[in-house]
């Protein structure tokens, strides 16, 4: 069993380039920041290293950080430009009974993260949900379709902070 600082030191020694830092200020457990294209390599290491053995991805969630600049659209509503979208990975080791949280941040204009589908199959539908709700592209995911919204939903990604609901969907009025 290791605490998050020890896991961070281990990772930092192994991947000095890909590990961007550790956030100890969060009100939860410390969060390790990771370079988006490297997340799969690091996930594999976390899963297979005998000292870590993170065999379970408890949850993968997308977050709109909304840290860009707000720009007025033609119709007077705010649109966020710049900033980041993030993906959080909550890992747990059933064998060693320790936990860790990973985070990758990716630019809002072109949000791309390497998929961890081949490391934990759990991430299949979780990544599809993050794609559906935030538009984060998971590279090398085998089946990146919308999972909750209809397949023909073309009004954007509902959980983004600057999302605007459409007036109509297939002839049905959407707003109240």
């Amino acid at each position: 069993m290791k605490n998050p600082e020890e896991i961070f030191e281990l990772l930092k020694k192994e991947f000095p380039e890909a590990i961007l830092g550790i956030d100890k200020e969060a009100p939860t457990e410390p969060i390790i920041l990771i370079d988006p294209p490297q997340i799969k390599t690091i996930s594999l290491f976390l899963r297979d290293n005998p000292e870590l053995r993170f065999d379970s991805l408890m949850v993968l969630s997308g977050v709109d950080d909304a840290n860009g600049t707000k720009v007025k659209d033609e119709d007077g509503t705010d649109v966020i430009s710049g900033g980041t979208l993030s993906v959080y990975y909550h890992l747990h080791s059933v064998y060693l009974k320790h936990k860790i949280t990973l985070k990758v941040s990716t630019p809002r204009g072109n949000p791309q993260v390497e998929s961890v589908y081949n490391v934990w199959r759990t991430s299949d539908w979780h990544e599809r949900e993050a794609f559906d709700m935030y538009g984060i592209i998971f590279l090398n995911h085998p089946d990146l379709r919308r999972i909750l919204m209809p397949y023909d939903w073309n009004a954007g990604y509902p959980l983004r902070k600057d999302y605007k609901n459409p007036e109509f969907y297939q002839g049905m009025k959407v707003p109240y």
Partner: peptide, 18 residues
């Protein structure tokens, strides 16, 4: 009429009578 989802339910039809 959409119930508790009437305002922020981006996915909810606000009343089946539509």
């Amino acid at each position: 009429c959409g119930g508790p989802y009437w305002e922020h339910g981006y996915h909810v039809l606000k009343g089946i009578d539509r």
